[in-house]
Nucleic acid binder design. Structure first.
Length: 590
DNA sequence: AAATGCCTCAACCGCCGAAGT
DNA sequence: GACTTCGGCGGTTGAGGCATT
């Protein structure tokens, strides 16, 4: 009845505590406790759940429950044919790497894909049908995963290789793909110009691995484009971080001394229905492929990214300037290193499942119920003065005709409807409420120094070229300094250096904080209940506006969402500010 | 209607690596 | 360097539902 597993013992403080751990299916009350815990403490410190929430569950169980069932933007329902194709494609290349495969399928969990696959191979095995579609059975050698060999040529037990999977006897029916010779060059012209295919460090090979998967899947089917966006984002994240020097040069270039750009990683790709988007990095933070040895220190892991973005097929919509960049620039990523907090931030948990919000990377708070429009605008003004281009045209994109959203009128049916493409019908625009008013107001205001702050196309091109060369330089540095793949002293040193630079940037950001403090309207912008969060300790913070209201909302919303009961005409205008603290104090993030 | 087999899915287990002490 | 703690991953299990006989 009671588990006395190794991990439970490790995670407990006394022999009696684990003896009280509960197992088995979760009840709604437990789910609520867990949701409350995550709202307050973020997706971390799972072993403190018992202490803080009273849940009699082990930390691992809590994490699993959250990741697989409670977190926002999970995509439930059967695996679509497109998803199945992509799963086949990815599985043919990386084997039973469910977490990695899941990272390529927005809203899907590793458990879900694992279950799907196991069921699938059972079914196909019984029928005697090949596991992979014909186009996947004989994949192009140059599309296959190169780093499996590079990582550990003697590795015979790795489940990375489908042929060596030990998961099931049914795997005997597994069709072993033709693995790439270690010396076979790969081609990734879609993402980067061709370059010598020498893998000197882990991230390097992971990058190529990711790009190979991307290329392969693209080759396989254009219908996968939407999902591939996610895959590509992961590819981007595996690149070595840009040296902060490029960021500093960029700031100098734009004559904006001592200010920080609140965009850390703007990833552009051509497949979003709205043109360009970033699918995994709402706060500009990079994500990494699972398994990267430096992931925990250099990047925020993909599982830690705000899920409403990490799994959003639409992601953010970039400014017109960014659109221009993306269209004309073959390089799909523009990464700006930054460790300091963003000036303004969006809170994706406001509209957790609509996914129809189109955010400019300036990341401003869109919740009309908790902040006033003039605060938005004041903050936007500050942003415009100091940051990348941000104009009323951006708001036009924000309210894309096909993808608008109205928080006030968003009914439960809308909230719960399947997200075919992450969009919500435009019908709701008829009564958009405060957001619409806010946008109207936005159109009438005068924006200071837009021209000056405009990140012009020419500058952008120049900057992107610089970024690319920096990236190449960084890549070369990684190559030259990298030792054995898993031997990381050089990498760790580099990470430390990056962190040092990050701290320096943080200091710069303090100046920005002082500027905003002087702003009489800026003080009430933030609302974050976590005392440990930098926001809460900053001059931007304020106490949660109405704790009872938040709780009531969370309860109603949660019950409605998870168990199908609740007020179908719920007024979501009272959505509370949700703590996003866990994203805000990660050290050394680029 | 009952029995059986299959399928799906949630949850658990054990292992592993990273980070901290 | 040894040990502990924590989180993540992949494999496995078992309950419940559904379809078939």
């Amino acid at each position: 009845m009671v588990a006395k597993g190794r991990d439970e013992k490790l995670g407990s403080t006394s022999s009696s505590s684990w003896a009280e751990l509960k197992k088995g299916p979760w009840k709604p009350e437990e789910d609520m406790l867990l949701v409350e815990f995550v709202k307050k403490h973020g997706e971390r410190d799972w072993n403190t759940v018992r202490k803080h929430s009273g849940l009699a569950r082990c930390g691992k169980s809590c994490r699993l429950r959250w990741n697989n069932h409670l977190r926002p933007n999970l995509r439930k329902g059967p695996i679509s044919p497109d998803e199945e194709k992509l799963i086949c494609q990815l599985h043919s290349q990386i084997g039973n790497k469910w977490a990695r495969i899941a990272a390529m399928l927005p809203g899907r969990t590793d458990n879900e894909i694992k279950n799907f696959w196991n069921t699938r191979i059972k079914r196909l095995s019984r029928k005697g049908v090949p596991l992979y579609p014909p186009e996947i059975q004989s994949p192009r050698p140059d599309l296959l995963n190169p780093y499996l060999h590079h990582l550990d040529p003697q590795n015979n037990h790795s489940s990375s290789s489908p042929s060596t999977s030990s998961s099931s006897t049914l795997q005997s029916n597994y069709q072993t793909p033709t693995l790439l010779s270690p010396t076979t060059p790969t081609s990734h012209s879609l993402l980067f110009p061709s370059q010598p295919q020498q893998f000197h460090d882990y991230d390097d090979v992971v990058l190529h691995d990711s790009m190979a998967m991307y290329d392969a899947a693209l080759e396989n089917s254009r219908h996968h484009q939407q999902m591939l966006a996610s895959a590509m984002m992961n590819s981007m994240a595996t690149q070595p971080p840009l040296p902060s020097s490029s960021f500093q040069r960029f700031k100098r270039q734009r004559s904006i001394p001592n200010l920080t750009i609140p965009v850390r990683h703007v990833a552009l790709h051509p497949f979003s229905p709205l043109g360009l988007s970033t699918s995994s990095s709402p706060l500009g933070r990079s994500v990494s492929m699972a398994g990267s040895p430096t992931a925990s220190t250099t990047y925020m892991h993909v599982a830690s990214a705000p899920h409403s973005y990490a799994s959003s097929p639409t992601g953010m919509v970039l400014s017109p300037t960014a659109l221009q960049l993306g269209v004309s620039n073959p390089h799909p990523t523009m990464r700006l290193p930054l460790s300091s907090p963003p000036i303004v931030t969006c809170r994706p948990t406001y509209l957790p499942r609509t996914s129809s919000f189109a955010f400019d990377p300036m990341l401003f708070d869109l919740n009309p119920a908790t902040t006033h429009a003039h605060h938005h605008m004041q903050t936007m003004d500050d942003a415009i003065d100091n940051e990348l281009s941000f104009s009323v045209e951006d708001l036009g994109i924000l309210m894309d005709p096909e993808t608008t959203i109205s928080p006030n009128t968003c009914s439960s049916s809308h909230i719960n409807e399947p997200q075919q493409n992450g969009l919500v019908p435009a019908a709701d625009r008829n009564n958009a409420g405060p957001l619409e008013e806010f946008l109207k107001e936005a159109e009438t205001i005068s924006i200071r120094d837009v021209e000056e702050a405009e990140f012009s196309t020419e500058q952008a091109h120049a900057f992107l070229n610089e970024l690319e060369s920096d990236m190449e330089e960084s890549r070369l540095n990684c190559s030259s300094s990298g030792q054995a793949l898993m031997d990381q002293p050089e990498a760790q040193l580099a990470v430390r250096e990056c962190q040092m630079e990050s701290m320096a940037e943080l200091e710069l950001n303090n100046e920005l904080a002082n500027l905003l403090e002087a702003n009489p309207l800026g003080h009430s912008f933030w609302s974050n209940g976590n005392d440990n969060d930098w926001l809460a300790n900053s001059q931007f913070s304020q106490p949660s506006n109405d704790h009872h209201q938040q709780q009531q909302y969370q309860i109603n919303h949660f019950m409605d969402d998870k168990y199908g009961y609740g007020d179908a005409s719920a007024d979501y205008s009272s959505m509370p500010v949700a703590a996003s603290s866990s994203w805000d104090n990660m050290p050394g993030i680029y």
